[in-house]
Simulated assay, not measured.
Amino acid sequence: MNRSWLPPGKNCGLCGEVSCRSFLRSVQAQEKFYEDCPFYKETQGGCGVDWELEATHPERDVLGHGYDFVLQPLPGEISARKIVLPFRGDLVEKLEIREGDLVVGRPMGAGCPIPHVLRVIEADPITGLLTTWVVGPKFARDGQQEVKNVSAYHMVGFEGIATAIRKEPTLGCRMTFLPGFCMMSLNHTGLVNMVLQKSEGPHIRIENILILATRDWD
């Protein structure tokens, strides 16, 4: 068993834990095994079993699209930051959504069919904008915290560290990217409006988000 392997940070909940971090803690406590993660891959080599040292992303998404980069969390965070706007912006004030709250809704504005559970980092009662992390669905199921349902929202933007870079993130350009937590592994596209060069990689913000779900894109 390779102790250097890390899960991909999707926080999908398929392992039975609320996040990839809690999964690793359970592995260390010998309550879970690396094999419980659906992204833990085993390859057969000439000398036996060779375990991947880290989670990787394919060069193309599930529809065969290439992407310019993968967007991963800022240091110490659990997912890339996701900025959303509920279809009814007044729900932020009406539901008294605050930092630390759990919110569930579907990114209907971009056409995504999957509801997401979000942990609120910042809530703006004036604009209705929520800055969030994407967390696993188990958060909504364990009953330990109220989950506030906004039903549907627009994906306004993402913020995180660009990795697996094939085209350098460029200010003012529309670029394609794969959110590291995207369970569907579908290419997204957006306008880059912030690029900060950091030691861990380009820290970027990208807005005007669309899901690139077409087969004739090159």
Rank of each mutant, 00 (worst) to 15 (best):
F33R: 14
A162I: 05
A140D: 06
K198I: 01
L74H: 02
E17S: 14
W51G: 00
F23S: 02
P107V: 05
P86I: 01
T131R: 07
C37R: 01
T189N: 08
T163F: 06
P107R: 05
I97R: 01
D68S: 13
V49G: 01
L186S: 03
K10Q: 09
T189I: 14
K138M: 15
H116N: 04
G143I: 13
G13E: 08
A164T: 13
V92M: 03
G172L: 07
V120Y: 00
E168L: 14
M1N: 08
P8T: 06
T132G: 01
S22A: 11
T43H: 15
L210C: 05
W51E: 05
M175Y: 04
P107T: 05
E42H: 11
G111A: 01
R106C: 10
S79R: 02
R21C: 04
L53R: 12
E17C: 13
E168R: 15
V104A: 12
F158M: 11
V156K: 02
P7Q: 09
S79T: 10
A164I: 09
R166Y: 14
V62Q: 12
I209R: 00
R3H: 11
D124Q: 07
G128Q: 00
R205K: 15
E31N: 10
S19P: 06
N2R: 11
G143L: 13
S199I: 12
D218R: 13
G89P: 00
E17L: 09
T131L: 06
L102R: 01
E31L: 13
G46M: 08
R119Y: 06
P73V: 10
Q30D: 11
G76N: 10
P113N: 04
T127L: 09
L24F: 06
L171C: 08
M183V: 14
Q30I: 07
N193H: 14
A164H: 15
E52C: 02
K198S: 12
P75D: 11
G66Y: 05
K94H: 12
S79K: 02
D101W: 03
R88Q: 03
L14V: 10
G136A: 11
H57E: 11
M1F: 09
F23N: 00
V195R: 06
